[in-house]
Nucleic acid binder design. Structure first.
Length: 591
DNA sequence: GTGAAGGGCCAC
DNA sequence: AAACGTGGCCCTTCAC
């Protein structure tokens, strides 16, 4: 295929190029940069293509650094990208939209992400890589040369080969979209893809926004924990050394407390029966009888805290913003859930000591909102179980309501124990819990646990039906879907009982967990539309929770917008069960 | 030195 | 411990 491209490096050419492109329905979109991090590198090229003619815009010719955001000659480009009229097709559009927003100062609207499309399809047709070259090879049967991708995009004079590479990537996008979209439609993934595409810009913004972490508070907490870790380590060394036959003249031989192997043999030397694992759950029963075991668990707690939630987190603070800009993977799990890394802001300990360090800067407020029991509400709605739905409609404490129904007592006479049982059942059932696990969790005998589970499912018969149907259907369907149509394909050996069991539990859980992700993503788009042009900024998400930061004077208004967006998104999916959002305006990430 | 695997543990 | 789902990070161990 002939490749026509034009290097655009002056205002008049840019205006002409953008007005030509404005007539297109679909525009291939790509950028070349000198770094992977928009806070560290330069946006060198922006490429736009209708598939036949490609404009390679040399951004450096229009200015550099912070001045670019306001450069008037770039206005036609900003207007084109931020217009909802043309669909901008990019591969991993979060990357391109982040660079454009940070360096050119505008959002990219109406995004079609061929990477996300490929991942969604991939969930249906098996393992396959999703880089642009892989997608082009798989869907178009052509080979795309990516060797220039890592070339020097900071050079004064870009080579002909670099420009051509840049043009090719953008030029191929409309065709890639067309092919992918045929599969999206035949696989009934268009609704899921729409949710994903509309979520790209909110997430790009969130990563650029970052979240403020108070360095001093964090260091104070770290100092407390580190001291305790050192103390626990010394005591533990002493207790473990008691079992060593020949103590050295030069002091006791230290063991590495972080080595499972060394700790296990030290415990065994003391005559403590360690069976298979030294996980906290397994050691806990031994902790009462053996103080050294209790001390080990104490040490582990402090070690985890100081090692995973210590200086390493502070090192992620970006100097130019003073904030943490983590990486969010939009389809982090096959269920559709996000994952987060560098650092993982979704696994910050729930304790106030840690969460209170994530703050609103001076003059700002944090709005913290989470869906109340969203997964159980989804299960109620999907299964259409009447008693289950009624329990939510009544507005009463849900776990108490469950307890009242299982134990056949009045709602106001439910004991804390009964409520606790019901709560653990309610959560367990979402994961496909079995009799043995429930028995161990509650301390009930297996027959008592079985009896309780039977009463639970008798209370919610349609839910029982739905779960059984999922378990049965997956054996022939080999897939499950969320309410948006997102699909997860299962591979399993039908002769392996453990694999079959795991697959069936997954088939029960995936539609619930995945619909929760659908709802969250939809809420993020509604929120994005609502807070555009205000001081409110999205700063973090944790599966069923959204954190927004806003000027103190606008916090109330932002809170209403956040709440409304979350409720509206939930109601789009859940037709028979009320959606509830808990919300707080605070200086800290605390609930 | 680097990377993968295993154990352990944080979140929802 | 296990037949309770989804992630990422830290450390050790071991291979290259």
């Amino acid at each position: 295929m002939e490749l026509y491209f034009q290097l655009v490096s002056d205002a008049a050419s840019l205006e002409k190029a953008c007005s030509e492109l404005a007539r297109e329905e679909f525009i291939g979109f790509d950028v070349e940069t000198t770094d992977l991090d928009p806070y560290k590198g330069e946006l060198r090229l922006v490429q736009l293509s209708n598939g036949r003619e490609t404009k390679v815009i040399d951004i450096r010719a229009f200015g550099t650094g912070a001045e670019l955001q306001a450069t008037p000659t770039l206005r036609p480009l900003r207007e084109l990208l931020s217009s909802p009229k043309q669909t901008k097709i990019a591969h991993n559009a979060k990357f391109d939209t982040k660079w454009v927003r940070h360096h050119l100062g505008c959002d990219t609207e109406n995004v079609y992400d061929t990477y996300l499309a490929s991942v969604l399809i991939g969930s249906a047709d098996g393992e396959r890589r999703h880089g642009l070259a892989d997608v082009v090879q798989f869907f178009l049967g052509r080979t795309l040369d990516k060797t220039e991708q890592v070339s020097d995009w900071g050079a004064n004079e870009l080579s002909a080969s670099q420009i051509e590479y840049a043009a090719k990537d953008a030029a191929i996008m409309p065709e890639v979209r067309e092919r992918l979209h045929e599969r999206i439609v035949t696989d009934a993934l268009d609704k899921a893809l729409k949710i994903e595409n509309e979520c790209v810009m909110p997430i790009a913004q969130m990563e650029l926004n970052g979240i403020y972490l108070d360095r001093e508070r964090w260091q104070e907490q770290l100092a407390v924990v580190s001291k305790k870790q050192v103390e626990a380590a010394e005591e533990l060394q002493g207790m473990l050394a008691a079992g060593v036959a020949q103590a050295s003249l030069f002091g006791r031989p230290e063991i590495n407390l972080d080595s499972v192997e060394q700790v296990t043999s030290a415990l065994e030397n003391l005559g403590i029966p360690v069976e298979g694992t030294t996980r906290a759950g397994a050691l806990l029963p031994l902790a009462e009888k053996y103080p050294v075991v209790a001390k080990l668990l104490e040490y582990r707690q402090y070690a985890k805290a100081s090692q995973s939630f210590g200086q390493n987190i502070l090192d992620f603070i970006e100097p130019s913003t003073g904030r943490i800009h983590a990486d969010f993977r939009q389809i982090g799990a096959p269920t559709g859930r996000f994952s987060c890394s560098n650092p993982n802001l979704q696994q910050i300990p729930h304790e106030t000591e840690y969460r209170r360090c994530f703050m609103a800067p001076a003059g700002r407020k944090l709005i913290v909102a989470d869906y109340s029991q969203i997964e159980l509400r989804i299960l109620a709605d999907i299964s259409k179980d009447k008693a289950f739905i009624d329990a939510f409609r009544s507005g009463a404490d849900f776990h108490s309501a469950t307890a009242a129904q299982i134990f056949r007592v009045a709602a106001d006479t439910v004991t804390p124990d009964q409520r606790s049982f019901a709560k653990r059942l309610n959560f367990g059932v979402v994961y496909g819990i079995g009799v043995q696990r429930f028995a161990r969790m509650t301390g009930l005998s297996e027959s008592q646990a079985e009896d309780t589970l039977r009463r639970y499912f008798a209370t919610y018969p349609r839910m029982d039906d739905w779960l059984r149907t999922q378990a049965k259907a997956v054996l022939t369907e080999r897939s499950a879907r969320t309410l948006s149509g997102r699909i997860a394909r299962m591979r399993f050996n039908e002769n392996d009982r453990a694999e079959v069991g795991a697959t069936q539990r997954y088939a029960k859980n995936m539609p619930i967990q995945g619909t929760s992700a659908d709802i969250l993503k939809r809420a993020l788009r509604l929120l994005h539309n609502e807070i555009r042009g205000t001081s409110a900024k999205l700063v973090n998400i944790v599966h069923d929770e959204i954190l927004v930061e806003a000027d103190a004077s606008e916090a109330e208004e932002a809170a209403r917008k956040l709440e409304n967006s979350m409720l509206a998104a939930g109601r789009e999916f859940l037709k028979d069960v009320p959606v509830k959002v808990d919300l707080a305006i605070s200086d800290e990430w605390a609930k």
